[in-house]
Design a binder for these strands. Structure first.
Lengths: 153, 153
DNA sequence: CCGCGATATTTGAAGCATAAAATAAACCGT
DNA sequence: ACGGTTTATTTTATGCTTCAAATATCGCGG
């Protein structure tokens, strides 16, 4: 294995490890405190930010497949946290919206979630966080430039 | 939401996004070229590096649950890429080993995998990669310091 | 040697995720 | 208006993942 490969793989594994640790803790806390999951939280958060979205638009923003979203929104609808109604202008499309209960649930969870994220990243100084943010921004740019096809859809 | 929270969440989302893009592309390529999955590749790679491992040791190193590994190694055993044999000294433990076919398969895939990782990270300069590596190392340290409990087991 | 807590693993239920195929509706050039 | 292509969504099959409960074995104190 070339030295360049070795370095790249090490960097990749470190990136993956950091992400997994943070994601794992967020997942655990969401389950323990709210009995929910990270993907469900993400759906609610996206809807809170955007108002009304179609299934496709939601799946694009969350970067998950369309089929995945069918089940995900189904579970959230079953819990009464969102509604799916047929669009009046495009009979193929479903309009997804938070219910009042969904909005309330999200707001409560979001406060905690943000606090958890802040405290997990709080071990870095503001300078370090800024530098990391900038570096990751560059990485993201180069990734987008390489192939337009991101991940799943 | 406090400014500090907002920055932290943005940094977290950027970290997550970079990881997901890279992971998605690796997953797609492994499926297209080799008909396998990232978790299965990870199992093989870990075994190649370590030789013989028990289920628990393997799950610790991959940072996945024990139950997960049962299915994962089952599928790989079905494909003839690894074997699970009862330990002679501890009848609870299973010793997991690559078969010759598993070792061959891994070596072929690893070459490609490393190349993919290198090319995805190749948009950054060596300095940028070094800096990112260092920053993530610091983040990983602070995460470990916060709670010993990482993610799943 | 007995019993009890710890360890190793599997099982089962639920949810997450993808890809690929199937439906259905919209759009568009002619 | 027709036919073909694209777009929106769901369905199906498969695999990943966790957690919690169940099984089995180990190791140790008494």
């Amino acid at each position: 294995m070339r030295q360049e490969d070795r370095d790249a793989v090490r960097l990749w594994l470190r990136l993956l490890s950091c992400t997994n640790v943070i994601e794992g803790r967020l997942r655990t806390r969401l389950r323990e405190r709210f009995g929910t999951t990270l993907p469900q939280f993400d759906v609610l958060a996206q809807l809170e930010a955007a108002g009304t979205l179609t299934m496709s638009e939601l799946s694009r923003r969350l970067m998950v497949s369309n089929g995945n979203l069918t089940g995900l929104t189904g579970r959230l609808a079953r819990e009464g946290l969102l509604t799916r109604t047929a669009s009046s202008t495009d009979r193929r499309a479903q309009l997804v919206r938070l219910t009042p209960a969904g909005r309330r649930a999200l707001r409560t969870m979001a406060v905690q979630h943000h606090g958890w994220v802040r405290s997990m990243l709080g071990g870095l100084t503001p300078q370090q966080r800024g530098s990391l943010h900038a570096m990751l921004g560059r990485l993201h740019d180069t990734l987008e430039r390489q192939y337009s096809t991101g991940g799943p859809r």
